[in-house]
Simulated scan of single mutants.
Amino acid sequence: MSMQWVPYLVMDGNAAEAADFYADALGGEVVDKMTFGDMPDGPNGPAPEEVKSRITHVRVVAGSQQLMLSDTYPGMPYQIGNNVTVSIGIEDAARAREIFDALCEGDSKIVLPLQETFFSPAYGQVVDKFGVFFQVNVPPAKA
């Protein structure tokens, strides 16, 4: 079973610029860039025009290492110092559930329950009892 932990930076409207900067600084490349405008419509309809150019996900890859970034959705809290999360990618959905549930123990806060999304069969967000923000993600099956 494969698992990797990746630093995930949350920006406030400048994730594309930051991704380019880190790619240059680290000798890598920007891959998998997706904006809020690229996402399918949600239950409340399409993303508002003012957020469509914001980044919902982008990766910087340098050698065997990666850094992931996204922008906040306008109105979501953003505070420098609290904008770094840990993304746990794991191929086994049952193990992802075990990890997510373990991180939820104690005085934690579930931000997004582990659930199927348009980009993952199992994705969730939790702030653990130590105040560390984790994203647990099962990548989609390869076609």
Rank of each mutant, 00 (worst) to 15 (best):
A15G: 05
E50M: 06
D101S: 15
D20M: 09
I80R: 10
Q4R: 15
A62S: 12
A102M: 11
E50N: 04
I110R: 09
S87Q: 11
F133Q: 15
S108M: 08
A16F: 01
E49T: 03
V30I: 00
K109C: 09
S108Y: 10
P46Q: 03
N82T: 08
K142Y: 12
P140S: 05
M76K: 01
F21W: 01
W5F: 15
G37R: 04
T117I: 10
D24Y: 07
V132H: 13
D32F: 05
F134L: 06
A47T: 04
S64A: 13
R97W: 08
Y78K: 08
L69C: 08
D38P: 04
G106S: 08
N14R: 02
D107C: 03
G28L: 06
Q79E: 13
D107A: 11
Y73D: 03
D32P: 05
A62G: 09
Y123T: 01
D101E: 14
V60T: 07
Q135C: 12
D71G: 06
V10R: 04
V127I: 14
G28S: 00
T117L: 06
S87T: 12
S64K: 15
G28D: 05
C104M: 04
Y123A: 10
V30P: 01
D107F: 09
V111M: 10
V136D: 03
A141Q: 14
L9M: 04
P139K: 07
M3R: 14
R54A: 06
D20V: 00
A15I: 06
A94G: 13
D107M: 02
G75R: 06
S87L: 12
G106L: 08
T35A: 01
E49N: 07
K129Q: 14
